[in-house]
Nucleic acid binder design. Structure first.
Lengths: 123, 123
DNA sequence: CAGAGGCATGGACGAGCGTCAATATCGACA
DNA sequence: TGTCGATATTGACGCTCGTCCATGCCTCTG
């Protein structure tokens, strides 16, 4: 399997794949999913297959300016600060959130088209 | 939160929710996801967040007639028969596959619109 | 009725996950 | 420079998950 960039999946991180708008493969119902593609896609799906991380994505998207710092998310989520940081890290590594540290605060925002690219594969 | 059927999520199985075309909630980026909705959505996403189950969905969809029995899936997947049965059960309980036992064989098929409903929430 | 074959279930085991408390790191500011 | 505050990391714990082997159930066919 070869992506639009001509690289095999194992050579590209989930971050790069999602950020480039190419999660990994053709829509599910169109052709049998290769074993390697399945691992790549599953890794991204595991990132959002958690109630806390789903709410984090939603909270960040709904926050003013489309970005939020950790302190904005702790209380609405009802989890400890280290746990929130952990979940945010997972989402960043999956290529669904960006992290921008400005001074003491770390601002997280949705990767444009990240979720859309993921949704496009589920067909 | 109230679904299109006027029932709270805990009163409806994931199967019913997906089969009715209503996974659970509004698109992620539109409004903050409620805690209960997040649990429901995460449960369905966990079902597909696994390489073996992603390939199963793809294999079933690509199979002639849009359905396949367990014996058709064991070899291409490279897993034991009990393991394949286990994964298929998870997908059925998530409302993404149907199971139709005819004689000795059990035929699995995609729930129409199941994946599309799921994809629609990821926005 | 007895055997065979397709599939599901139960038990077991190692690996990974979600959470927290404690602690470390880093930038702002007096 | 020293303290404070926001965030990240570490270590630990219980729980869930993916997999297999062994076995049970059910249906067809001699």
């Amino acid at each position: 399997m070869v992506t639009a960039l001509g690289l095999v999946p194992t050579e590209r991180s989930a971050v790069e794949a999602a950020a480039s708008g190419v999660v990994c493969c053709a829509p599910l119902s169109r052709e049998p999913l290769g074993a390697e593609d399945a691992v790549v896609l599953a890794r991204i799906l595991k990132a959002i297959a958690d109630p806390a991380r789903l709410r984090l994505l939603s909270l960040v998207a709904a926050h003013e300016g489309g970005e939020a710092c950790v302190c904005d998310l702790i209380e609405p989520l009802g989890l400890s600060q280290p746990t929130v940081s952990h979940h945010l890290k997972v989402l960043v590594e999956a290529g669904l959130l960006t992290r921008d540290k400005r001074g003491v605060w770390a601002y997280y925002a949705l990767v444009p088209g990240g979720l859309d690219a993921l949704a496009a594969v589920l067909r």
